[in-house]
C-alpha cells in the first residue's frame, strides 16, 4: 500500500527550554530564580561578613559605604544576612512544596483513579481541610509541634496538601475520562501501567506549574510564621524573621524592613513569573 501524505503534519516543535526562554515572563522568572540559587549556593563566598557576627562596624549603619545594605540593630551586615537568608528561603520553598506536592498528588491521583468510596473519603477529607485557611492549619501544626524552622516548614507543607490534592484530582479526573486512557484500559493495561505511563505524565505538567506558583505561597507562609515568632529562631538569617525583628526600628532604620521585604517580593515574583512561563511552554496546545 502506498504511503499516505496528508497535509498538516507539523514540524517538530522548538524544545521546551527554548520555548520557556522565549516567553518574556519565563525568561525573567528563570533569571531571578537562577540568581537566587546562585546566591544561596555561594553565600559563604559572596558574603563579605559573617551573618551572625555582631557589632563589627556599628549599629544601624545606613546602606552604602562599607556595609552595602547597612547593618542591623546588633551591627550585623544586612547584605550577608540576606545572602544567607536566600539559602533558608529556597530550602523552605522546596521542602514545603515537596511535601505538599508529593502527598497532594498521591491523594489526588488515587482518588481520581480508584473512584468509589476511596475517592469519597479522600476528597471529602480534603474538602474539610480546605475550609480552613492554610495559615490556620499551619499555625495549629506549629502549636502542636513547637516553634522551630523545621516544624514551620512541615506545617506549611501539610497546610498546602488540600490545594495540591484537589488540583491534581481534577486534572487526573479529566485525563482518566479521555479516550486515550480508556483505550489503554481496553488494551488490557493494569493499574501500575495506567498510572505511571499515562496518568502521571499527563498531570505532571499542570502540577509543575502549580508547584512553581506554590513555592512563592510557601515562602510567604513560612515568612509569616517566622514573623509571628513561630518559625526561624534567632540568630537564623531568615527573611520573614528579619522582617519581624525590624518592626521596632521602622522609623530609625527603615531599610531593616524594606530590604528583607523586597527580597521576599522579588523571590515571589521570580517564582510566579517562572510558573507563568512554564505554563505556556508545557502546554501542548501552545506548543503548536
Amino acid at each position: 500500500m502506498q504511503t499516505v501524505t496528508e497535509p498538516q503534519t507539523q514540524r517538530a516543535p522548538p524544545g521546551f527550554w527554548r520555548r520557556l526562554v522565549r516567553s518574556p515572563s519565563g525568561l525573567v522568572g528563570l533569571s531571578i530564580v537562577l540568581l537566587l540559587v546562585f546566591c544561596a549556593a555561594f553565600a559563604d563566598v559572596l558574603a563579605p561578613y559573617s551573618p551572625t557576627k555582631m557589632g563589627a562596624g556599628g549599629r544601624f549603619l545606613p546602606p552604602g559605604g562599607k556595609y552595602l545594605l547597612g547593618t542591623d540593630e546588633f551591627g550585623r551586615d544586612m547584605f550577608s544576612r540576606i545572602l544567607y537568608g536566600s539559602r533558608i528561603t529556597l530550602l523552605i520553598g522546596a521542602v514545603a512544596v515537596g511535601i505538599s506536592l508529593t502527598v497532594g498528588m498521591l491523594v489526588g491521583m488515587i482518588a481520581a483513579f480508584r473512584r468509589g468510596w476511596i475517592e469519597a473519603i479522600l476528597m471529602r477529607g480534603t474538602d474539610v481541610l480546605f475550609s480552613f485557611t492554610e495559615t490556620l492549619i499551619a499555625l495549629s501544626f506549629v502549636a502542636v509541634l513547637g516553634p522551630s524552622l523545621q516544624n514551620a516548614v512541615i506545617a506549611v507543607g501539610v497546610a498546602g496538601v488540600p490545594f495540591y490534592a484537589r488540583t491534581c484530582y481534577s486534572a487526573a479526573l479529566v485525563e482518566t475520562s479521555k479516550p486515550y486512557f480508556e483505550a489503554s484500559i481496553a488494551a488490557g493495561a493494569g493499574p501500575a501501567r495506567l498510572v505511571l505511563t499515562h496518568l502521571l505524565p499527563n498531570v505532571l505538567p499542570t502540577m509543575i506549574v502549580v508547584a512553581t506558583l506554590g513555592v512563592s505561597t510557601a515562602i510567604l507562609a513560612a515568612a509569616g510564621l517566622s514573623f509571628l515568632g513561630l518559625g526561624a529562631q534567632p540568630p537564623t538569617s531568615e527573611w520573614g524573621y528579619m522582617l519581624a525583628g525590624s518592626r521596632d526600628y521602622i522609623n530609625r532604620a527603615p531599610w531593616l524592613m524594606t530590604i528583607p521585604g523586597l527580597a521576599i517580593a522579588v523571590t515571589v515574583l521570580g517564582f510566579n513569573l517562572l510558573g507563568d512561563g512554564l505554563r505556556t511552554s508545557l502546554d501542548p496546545v501552545e506548543r503548536k
Binding site: K178, P179, Y180, F181, E182, A183, S184, I185, A186, A187, G188, T197, H198, P201, N202, P284
Partner: peptide, 20 residues
C-alpha cells in the same frame, strides 16, 4: 481477555496519549 477485543474511538485527537 481484553486482548481479544480492541477499540477504535471516534475522536482521533483524544484517543492517543499526547505525551507518548
Amino acid at each position: 481477555a481484553r486482548r481479544q477485543v480492541q477499540m477504535i474511538f471516534q475522536d482521533p485527537y483524544a484517543s492517543l496519549d499526547p505525551r507518548q
